[in-house]
Every structure is written in C-alpha cells, then in structure tokens.
Write a protein that binds this DNA or RNA. Structure first.
Lengths: 261, 261
DNA sequence: CGGTTAGTTGAGAAAGCTCAACAGATGTGG
DNA sequence: CCACATCTGTTGAGCTTTCTCAACTAACCG
C-alpha cells in the first residue's frame, strides 16, 4: 500500500520533523542487514522539516544510513533491553511500540508509519525501553547513532534537527498523556482516527480513507480501553454517520463532527 | 525544606541524568533575572550522572548557567507558546507542568523537584508546549539552549549527556502512559507515592516521610482521576496501614505492600 | 473444510465520577 | 485578635462509564 503512493508534502505536517524515507528501489534488501553505504538505493530524504538542510547536509545524512532492514509482520525490530546502537526510520510498512510491565500488562505507546522515527527512547540508558513490532512486512533505514552524533558536531542545523526530533517525541507523548488522562473512550478513538488521518494526509495518502494495520485490541491497548469498547465506539460512530468502518478499512465521513465529539 | 537538607547521591538515582543544583548561597537573587556569569554563586553540579563529566566540562557547564531566577508560589516560569530560549533546572522548590486543551480541560504532565530539568519540550517547535508553575517559592538555573548546543559541539560527552536527558524524558513519559493506560486508581496513587519517595531519597531527603507541595486536585489531574478519588485512595491506604497521610504530610509505612497493590 | 482468530453485540458487575454536605485550615479586614 | 469568607480535604449516595464475561458471526489459514 505505502510503496505505490506518491509523496506530497505541500500539506502541513501535523507531527513535525519526521523523516520521510522514499523507497525508489523495489528490490528490497534481505533481513537482517546489508550494508549499502555509498549506494544511492536508500535515499533518506529529509522533507517536511521545519528547518531546511542544505543539499550537502542531506547527502551527509544519507551517508549515515548504512543499510535498510526488512522486518516481517509480527517480528520485532528491537526489544526492550536490547543494546541501543541505532535510530531507525520507517521506510515502508508500519510498527507499534510496546512497553511492558513485569506483571504482564502492556501499553502500546505509539504506531509508526513511513517517515516516523523509532528508537529515540534508547539513548537514555543505552538500551531500548520498548519493543518495536512490525504490523506488516516492513522496511526501516538504520541510522547508527554514534555517527549521527558526530555529524551533529559538525553541523549546527543537523544538531538542531536531532534535538527537535527528540523534543517532538516528548511533545507527542504529552498529548497522549492528556488523551489518556482526561478524555472519554469516545473522544480518544475520535482523536486517534483524526490523528492517523492527518498523518496519512501529510504523507500524500488519503486522510479520508485508510487501512488500519493494527487490531482492535492494539488500538485499545494504545488508547487505554478494552477491545470491546473500541468496537462499540466504532459502531457508535457508524450509527451517527461520522465514520464508515468496515473491519480494518476506515472511511471518515464527517471529520468536523468527529473533532467535536 | 529543601535548602537545609544534605545531598547524598550514593543511592541509585531512579530518574537518571538529573541536574542537581546546589544552593550554597542563601542570598537568592531577585526575579526576573540577574546575570551571574563567571560567578561561583550558582554552581550547577552535575552529579548522579551515568557518565562522568570532567572537571573542565562541569566548569564549562557552570559557565553556561547565566543566572538563576526566582519564581513565587503560583507564578509561571514559562507558559505554553512562550518563545523557547532556555532550559531550566530546578534549584530549590518545586514545579508542575501542565498542558491545556482549548476546551478547558488540562493535564498535569509532571512534578519537578530540585535537580529536575524543565523546558525540554520547547526545542521541538521553538516555543514551550506547557505551562511550568511553581508549587512554592522556588529558584531555577537558566541554561541558554543555544550556548548548551555550542558546548555540545565541542564535547562529545556533553552532547551525549543532553541526548540522554531528552531521551530520559521520553522514557519517563512512556511510564506515565502505561500508568494512565493500564492501572487502577489505587495502583496509580501507589506508584506515584513510591516514585516521589524514590526521587526524594535519591536527593538525600527521607523517602519515608515527605511533604506534598501539590493539592489533591493536582495529583488527580496528574494521575487521571478526580480529587475525590485521590482522597479516597489515601484513606484506603491509611485503613490498610500502608501510608499515614496527614493532609500534605505523608509517611510511607509499608512500601513493600504499597508496591504490590 | 474444520480450526483458529478477530470483531461485534448483549447483560450484568465494578470502578470511578458527580453532586452534596461537612470539617478543618487559612487568610483577611475590621 | 476575632469573625467571616474562602479554600482544601474528606466522606457519602447515586449514577455513568467502562469492564468482564459470554455468545455469536465473519474472515482467515493451513
């Protein structure tokens, strides 16, 4: 689905500073890794960014991307407590990040689509703090963090870019805390759908119609409710003519009204 | 309360990489700001850090701290949408950070005690994303972000330190998402009290007995419940002999059992 | 084609919220 | 310094939302 679509970043980007990784070469590389440094096959294009990097800087960023990696549906890109080496940018496909409590219960902390960064939580302790699991067969760009830091020493704008990337993750998570702390189940699902729609739109896909790659249970686990409640809220939205859910196929009929829920 | 206590950082630090700002000089400076660069009055000591900075690096960090600033109880250090210029480190007192939705409801995203950083969310968009409000008369160190970035270009360890600081904020927020998404009211309050206790302990204060500077309402707003529920949970903990709450004065009697709630 | 998984819907239970009353603490002006 | 007003915290009762358990259907898979 993602590979075919054309990118159009003229629209405003709701989650600022995301890497958009183009997939110009249909011949994807084998898992787990294969070095492609110096090769133009994985051109990491830093678009939709608040500060414009120069051509040289983009090229330097591209050179840092050593390889891409395939992750099959259901497999982990990294697990909590794995040693942190690299940041990742989703190239094709999608992921969920999950933090687990020893007592078994778990919380989905985010869903990542092409252009989204993964692994920023690992810098803190030198090990990853969550599991990143592919929701479908996916590819990521590998950005060795040490090299990225070196690059940041040379370029102020690159440095600022990395800092903004990390800060935007902090801001994204505060919005989620607000969602979890203050909203009803209905409002949470509405907010979730509108956010997804905006992110798809910003990447050139339709914001009105899209395919959920995650299950009702995973949505519930993200929004702090049970899968049954998620299902009921979908039904309610259908009854009220705001959303036309058909299993995983979602069509947003009345975004205005959805936002006012 | 904070000024008198001796610091003892031999104990493990639960929230890694926090700046501990000593307050060696009781004669605090006037609000809003007064430059003290080059002066030893505000010695920002980077202790309890996972990577040890050299004496020179600590000195350089100290030099970046231009001033300290007083914030009276109830006043804001910064507001959402204020231009982002500086990071802050709490020196004495305490703060809450609040994100607001246009519809009036708000979420407390954190409570900061001495040594905690403030303002990391501002890097993203060049403006602050939340309000930082003093819970009592407080002082903060001002760290101009541009200068900190320059310093990071010169020192890899300083750069790594900043990145860890930002990443740990990401990790902290994921724990909060887990708390808000998966725990009962009882578990949330227990977790909150134990986290506070651990943070006080790591700073050399008693972890068994401390004073809450925030109201029941603010706690509820942080933990995603009403002030009544917070109050009821305190009463339950007292009945079960785990906590001895006396208004804002809290004594943790049985931390083990509290952790098992 | 049978077995498994994902999604929907219903009914009853439980957690937490709302509204209300009240107590204690704090602050303020006379 | 007192009287009054205000704010904060506690507790109760009834209500609402969401959860749990269960049944059922549709889709998917080997």
């Amino acid at each position: 689905m993602y590979a075919e679509a054309a990118y159009d970043c003229s629209l405003p980007e709701p989650s600022p500073m995301r890497w958009i990784a183009e997939a110009p070469n249909p011949e994807v590389l084998e898992s787990p890794r294969r070095a492609i440094s110096g090769s133009p096959t994985c051109s990491l294009r830093a678009v939709c960014m608040p500060l414009d990097l120069t051509a040289t800087e983009v090229e330097e960023l591209d050179n840092v991307v050593l390889a891409i990696r395939n992750v099959r549906c259901g497999k982990t890109l990294f697990r909590a407590r794995d040693a942190f080496q690299s940041l990742y940018a989703v190239r094709t496909g999608s992921f969920k990040t999950v933090v687990m409590h020893r007592d078994g219960y778990e919380q989905v902390t985010g869903f990542q689509i092409p252009g989204d960064p993964l692994g920023l939580d690992g810098v803190c302790a030198g090990m990853h703090n969550c599991d990143a699991i592919a929701l479908e067969d996916s590819t990521v760009c590998i950005i060795p963090f040490g090299q990225l830091e070196s690059l940041c020493c040379k370029s102020h704008r690159m440095q600022r870019y990395l800092h903004q990337l990390m800060s935007s993750e902090i801001v994204r998570e505060s919005s989620l805390m607000m969602l979890l702390g203050t909203m009803t189940a209905e409002q949470r699902l509405a907010t979730f759908l509108l956010d997804l729609a905006a992110r798809f739109r910003a990447r050139g896909y339709s914001g009105a119609q899209f395919n959920l790659k995650m299950s009702r249970e995973e949505i519930g686990c993200f929004l702090g409710m049970t899968l049954e409640t998620v299902s009921r809220m979908f039904s309610r939205f259908r009854q009220e003519g705001m959303v036309e859910p058909n299993g995983k196929e979602i069509r947003i009929v009345d975004a205005e009204r959805l936002a006012r829920v």
